[in-house]
Structures are given as C-alpha cells and as structure tokens.
Simulated assay, not measured.
Amino acid sequence: MTISIGHRRLQIAQPGNILLWLIAAFHILLAAALLAVLFSVSPAAAADDSCSGKDLMAELKQSDPARYAEVVKEADAVPNGKGIFWKIDKPGLKPSWLLGSMHVTDPRVLNLPDYAQAAHDSADTIVIESDEILDEKKAAAALLARPDLTMFTDGTTIDKLLSPEDYARLDAGLKQRGIPLSAVSRMRPWMIASAVALPACEIARKAKGVQFLDQKIAADAIKQGKQVKGLETLAEQLQAMAELPMEFHLKSLIETLELGPKMNDVVETMTDLYLSGDVGMTIPMLKTVSPEEGGDGDYAAFEQRIILDRNKVMADRAAPILAAGNVFMAVGALHLPGDQGVIELLRKQGFTVTAVN
C-alpha cells in the first residue's frame, strides 16, 4: 500500500499494524471525548446519535468457519482473556473489584451488570485511569496548558502533511461528526485520528452531554460521597502518544480514512466482544479486518509504550490504594489480559485475582 504525505510517498508494509494500534488506542483516547468541549460541538451540529455497524465476527463465522476457528484458538491462548469483572483478594483485607472498561457512551456498556453495580455502590474508594475526566472543562483547560501534546506549535498545519485527496476525505469525515476542519487544522495527527475513529454517534452523544462509562462510574461515586482517585494524568496519557514517531501517526490517520464506514463495523464488533467478556479476542479479530503483511515493528512499539508501560504504571499506583481494601477499580479492558497485563501484575504483588462470572 502506498500513500501520499505532502509531497512524499510512503510504502506501508503492514497496514494491519496501523489499524491495530489505532483501535487499541481507542480505549485510551479520553482526550478525544473532550472534542465536543474543546470545539463546542452542538447537539444540532452533531450527527444522529444512533449507531450503525455489523458484527464482523458473526459474519466471519458464517463466511469462513476455518478462519473463525483460528481467531477463537488464538483468543483462547491469551492469559486472562475471558471476563471484564474480577475480584481482588488479599489476606486481612476486604475484597476489592476490577472492571475492564470501554470508554464509550453506548447504553449497552453503561448498563453495568447487577453484581458490578453492587460492588461499585458498596466500595469505599473508586479508582479510574484519570480522575481529571470528572470535570471536562478543567480537563480541556489542562490539555490546552500543554499545547505541545496535542497541537503543532511551529506553524505546521495538517494540510501541509496530507495529499489533497486525503485532506478532502478528512474534511468529509469530520463534518459527519459536527467538527469543523478549521478547528483541528493545527492538531497532531493522532488527535485528529481519534476523532475520525470515534463513530459519529459517539460524538453526537457526547455533544448531548452523555457520559462515557468511566465518567459515569466516577460521577456516580461522587454523588454517593465516595473518594475517587486516578492512576494517571491526561498529560501522561497524551505524552505516551506524542512520543511515537510522526510518520507512524500520519499513516494511522490515513488508514483510518481508508476504512471509512467500516470503522463502525469494527467498533460494533469490539463492543460485542466486550459485552460478552471476550476481551482476549479483540486483537485476533482486528487482524481479520486488516491482515498482517509484514513485520510487526509498528505495533510492537505501540504495544510497549501505550499498553505494557502503562500497565505497569497502573498496577504500581493501584497497589497502595488496594492495600486499604474495598476498592472498585475501572481501567481500559485491553489493559487486563496478557502475561504483562494488569491482572498478572497485581498477582505478582501478592493479590489473588479471580474472574467473576
């Protein structure tokens, strides 16, 4: 695959990795949810809040049973890949709870299972990735205080980095979400890509004031008089993205534009997998959307900086909070599975972590 970036042309040896990092990034881009605040997207300007998309796994199961079986086999091999709700025990402590979250406003996701809601309501302390999301205006102000993390500060604009064709497609994609291209022209490509990757219905619901899951969990806790603590700052999350190479981000933005409406299918499938607790199937599923064709350097770099490094930070910072017992913690679901996931890291700290069906 060859793409144009300004006057340059780049060979992409592995489009699959670009899609993988983008969708994996979807669960950490809390900043993208602030676009409605930053750009004052009104409910009238935003798209309709009804989502469209089909379940790609159901389609694959019918069209290619053998390939579907391979995906299931790969998913089954992922440690802790089943379940989004876990119990955390340690002798002498009241049990704590761990929820793998999805940072979306989908009503199906917001409706926690009864046992998870009961654990939330009875907990003394609520832990989320960043407690800054409780006040979006303050969070937006914090981001604007570090413009280097989200914006070009040297006069660069996105039209200088994209071909005219890709620039026009970007304009169209943003219009569908009620976001003027002029408002993001100086934004870094990964920030723009997050806006395009989010389904239009997500932006529309955000413009109408609907909270995404983590916000709702924290806001409900505040109403109940509970203490809410964050494991990271938004600036730390953005810094991790900003440290990845610029061409990496540009390729990812263009790959997102290439997907077009298919992105709705990808997000719908991710949501279905999340709701069924099949978190370990997410990455194998994504490989069927954009098959790997080469080395995995791009995704390996992303995985290390955005997922694995942050897993360690989350587990280390959560440990002293969990030491008090009776904690309800919610972090992105893709941080849970794997031999270097948050679950395994907590076990290495002496906690017993078991799935709750």
Rank of each mutant, 00 (worst) to 15 (best):
V313D: 01
A315L: 03
L181A: 15
K82H: 07
Q227N: 10
I307Y: 07
F302H: 08
C51S: 12
K229M: 14
L110A: 13
S252H: 04
A46D: 05
D278F: 01
G350I: 03
A200K: 01
I133M: 04
L231M: 05
L181C: 07
L322C: 05
L30T: 11
G280V: 00
S96Q: 03
E292F: 09
G260F: 00
I133C: 01
T157I: 14
L213Q: 10
K90E: 08
F152M: 13
G277K: 00
L174E: 07
A172N: 07
A33R: 14
K87C: 10
D214F: 01
M191R: 03
N326E: 07
M281Y: 05
A140K: 05
M329T: 00
S163I: 09
N80L: 03
D124E: 12
V356R: 03
E344N: 11
E258T: 12
G209K: 10
W190M: 13
L308M: 09
G338Q: 02
E165I: 10
M57P: 03
M246Y: 04
D124P: 02
E293S: 15
G225E: 06
S40V: 08
I23Y: 11
D309N: 12
L99I: 12
G325P: 00
G209A: 14
E344Q: 13
R188Y: 08
F328R: 01
A207L: 03
L174Y: 07
D49S: 10
T157M: 11
R305W: 03
D148F: 03
H103E: 06
A324R: 11
G297E: 12
L238T: 11
D159C: 10
K262W: 02
A77M: 07
A33M: 12
K90S: 12
E293I: 13
I84D: 06
L213W: 04
K94Y: 02
L345I: 10
A123H: 02
V228D: 06
E268L: 09
S50G: 12
I158P: 03
A207W: 01
L275V: 07
H120R: 12
V267H: 05
A200N: 02
G155F: 07
E344K: 09
Q224V: 08
V267D: 04
V353D: 04
A219V: 08
K226M: 06
V228M: 08
G83V: 00
P199T: 01
I222A: 11
A46N: 03
L322I: 04
